[in-house]
């Protein structure tokens, strides 16, 4: 048997819209895409913030509960001075760098997801 022409009348599988189009047309699926992105970014932002700022915010409590800690010396500086004048700043920059890297990565993943035809 020789097939001279492909079957064209049978229903073809529906070619899915790209994620971009789903989002632009405000479909349910588009909303799910967006909720996923926003959720991921919110989780990332909040965790970087809470870990970094939370750790900092523990210090006043720590120094109040245990005043002796204030007299402890690191590199010739009192512990509060060492922590707040020197140690904090590199930590903040590092946290910021980590956040930027992760946020850009999750945006790239989102772009790959929605641009898939």
């Amino acid at each position: 048997m020789v097939v001279t022409s492909p079957r064209t009348r049978a229903p073809r599988a529906r070619r899915p819209y790209s994620g971009t189009r789903e989002i632009n047309e405000q479909s349910e699926l588009g909303a799910v895409y967006m909720r996923t992105l926003i959720g991921a970014q919110r989780r990332l932002g909040l965790s970087v913030c809470l870990v970094t700022c939370g750790a900092l915010a523990l210090l006043p409590l720590l120094f109040t509960i245990e005043p002796e800690l204030g007299k402890f010396r690191v590199f010739g500086l009192g512990l509060p001075w060492f922590l707040l004048c020197l140690a904090t700043f590199p930590m903040l920059v590092l946290a910021g760098w980590f956040y930027v890297r992760q946020a850009e990565r999750s945006e790239r993943e989102f772009a790959e997801l929605v641009e898939r035809p």
Partner: peptide, 24 residues
């Protein structure tokens, strides 16, 4: 004294919060 070190730390940490929650 050192209680006031929270001013420079806070002025800087404010930008971390701004970066993570608001900037983009």
């Amino acid at each position: 004294g050192p209680d006031m070190l929270w001013f420079p730390v806070g002025y800087t940490a404010g930008y971390l919060v701004l970066l993570t929650m608001v900037a983009a």
